[in-house]
Design a protein around this nucleic acid. Sequence first.
RNA 1: GGGGGCGUGGCGGAAUGGCAGACGCAGCAGACUCAAAAUCUGCCGACCUUAAAUCGUGCGGGUUCAAGUCCCGCCGCCCCCACCA
Length: 824
Amino acid sequence: MSYSKETDGKWQKKWAETGLYKYDPNAEGKKLYCLEMFSYPSGAKLHLGHWYNYSLTDSWSRMKRMQGYNVFHPMGFDSFGLPAENYAIKTGIHPKDSTLKNIDTMEQQLRAMGTTVDWDYEIKTCMPDYYKWNQWFFIELYKKGLAYRKNAPVNWCPSCKTVLANEQVVDGACERCGSEVVRKNMTQWFFKITDYAQELLDDLPKLDWPEKTKKLQTNWIGRSEGAQVALYVEKDGKRLENEDGTPVKLEVFTTRVDTFMGITYVVIAPESELCEKLTTDDCREAVEEYKKATAKVSEIERMSTTREKTGVFTGAYAIHPLNGRKVPIWAADYVVAGYGTGVVMAVPSHDERDFDFAHKYGLDIIRVIQSEKSVDDELPYCEKKGYLTNSGEFDGMEMHDAQKAIVAKLAEMDMGKWKVNFRLRDWLISRQRYWGTPIPMIHCPKCGVVPVPEDQLPVELPYDVEFTPDGESPLAKCESFMNCKCPECGGDARRDPDTMDTFVDSSWYQFRYCDNKNESEMFSREKIDKLCPVDKYVGGAEHACMHLLYARFFTKAMRDMGLLDFDEPFTSLVHQGVILGSDGQKMSKSKGNTVAPDEYIDKYGSDVFRTYLAFGFAYTEGGPWSDSGLQAIVKFFRRIEAMIPDAAKAASGVPADLTKDDKELNYAINYTIKSATNDIERFQFNTPVARLMELLNAISKYQQTEGAKPELYRKAVETLLLVLAPFAPHFTEELWCDALGNGYSIFNQKWPECDESALVKDEIEIAVQINGKVQFKVNIPATADQDAVEAIVKADSRLEGALAGRNIVKFIYVKGRLANIVAK
RNA sequence: GGGGGCGUGGCGGAAUGGCAGACGCAGCAGACUCAAAAUCUGCCGACCUUAAAUCGUGCGGGUUCAAGUCCCGCCGCCCCCACCA
């Protein structure tokens, strides 16, 4: 019988019946928690990317199982989210119905893949038994002051009267109706991730994560050291004061406090509340006009330095605390409200953006830094070195000394201090959507914002809701949901109409797997202590800054609440690459370049497909899809099958006396074991398959030699099967158990170990180079030291010709590799 | 705009700073066959009739006995940027 998809079904059934992959917490072996990022059931089926991620991580965990680890390998579905809701709006099929149906299909497909997933630990985030704990944890964060409300902008379509996701905004217009999208402020919930900014940064070095991912997070957190300094404000000719009579301070953050004496204007983000307060009546109309215009521009565009800067004078002035200079306050959209204080001090002489802006609007430019004393550089001069000028008492100081002096002086006046600022912003979690976890908060006219009491959780998401967009959050229109009693005063109150960002679900699911049926706790401390943190986490690199940062934040917050006792959720992380369409473009239905795995599984079986995915790509790189290599795997399998009848004739073993041919095969066996084990360990899957093909070639060659020993032949074939097993579990199980008559199951066998003595060769060939260029090759004893090799090389008749009259200056021998002669 | 990555034969891709192109696909030639398919064997970076030599990892510099690999500067392509998950 040759391998086909029937083989898959046969063994999947047996594995299930015998519970081969059931996780037993008390089993022998070191615990190993292997996790892939769970999938979002938006499409009806698993796509190629899922296969690439799940089948190969499964191969990795199969090797670890065979190596004796007690592997925990669960799977679930990230099943709340926007696409199901959009699909519902389009088709009228309820998100719950479509989602649960998709999950069923995807479970079937995952089973057909033949993974080691233990389905007893499955989770689905859209079910109340899961999202109840989102709500519980939200309230815990609220109690700790880590969840709070504030105003924040949303994308708003004035025609659909609905909030839009970034992806629903195409070129500044609503994707449904084409109306121009504006930004609008709403009161929304935030999680205070910024409280953990420093720790999130500090713990990165100890993680076994790709360096690029750590770099991305480092830049995303964006720590910068500088100073927060203040200016006074003059409006309508008077010093602006607070209600208590103290002067209003305009706070700005700067990393270049040495240029403080060069301020010629101040810029404020137009949408900030302070801008409203500063604007004079004369200028109000112009500022309002400007605010309307900037509301249409996205934040990414605003940050662009090539885009021509625009702005408008607010009518107010800032008063410099050290020299008393009166400088205009402008509103301009190159300042972002969410970063720092939303106000920037402008020093056009030493900042390119300020320089351009000052030039355009005819604002003053005063030089305060010189690269060398008395050298007037061309402006803007933005190098971070030099000496102060035009800065009064600070003139002549080196800029870093000047920074200290200026901050010290401002601190004395209570107008400045050193400050560390982060680019990271708090996590906005409110979504004005239906298909998500309801926010467990009640708004009482008397008591204000009140959390839902724990015994009333979960706040269930109602099924019958009108979710066509018509100006309100879908839940806001559901009266039976919205109306409730205030837990404090018992009076009539309303629920929060928003749902949570689905990233909340995925920030702690890795812990829920360990205790997925717990009804009284989010998870038990005992189970978490035993299984967590996750030892190996595998998923796409696109999550580097969001999911992976949020999950780290949750873990740290949970630790501080005593829910668990470690600092990081994912000890080791791997990103799989992206498989592109055969045209080299990202796969998408609209481009028509998608690859449907199901068709290939029907035709070739799961194992051919899995092994091809391993062999055809560099795992962490991915690349364009091509069918052509699949046939190579079919051929590879066939050649293995052809070896079985002869292998079945003898018992497996390594004979005591080895001939040259025996030694060669034994070398191939052990070299395969050694390199494949190393490569699989580090998630490199293409080279192990290549090594197995080499082993196959070596076995073929050996079979044709005279005096080939049947027991060694069988040993070689069995090694081939064992090392191939993680990639082709059904195929190898069939050959191992049924064709060779070994005991069930191949996955209960020990992973083969390398016999290092088989890798020791008596004689090796090395290259001889002169000045780095290969001249000829010599055979040397493997144990030869540098002196011995030098003697052999110097005695070689070819050396003189290669030297061509040059003298040997130095002789370098790199053990087992080559010799290099430096000659002049 | 900011951030991250990548660039090696016709193609997918190998290569702890140490003989570039493992393994495979495609191609070419041969064996088997009435024939084809399948299978097996050999060849397969460029230049060159062949051999030898030379050149060769996007381009230009540098470090080193030795650079695809490390450093600097370009060019090209791809990904991410907080309401897609």
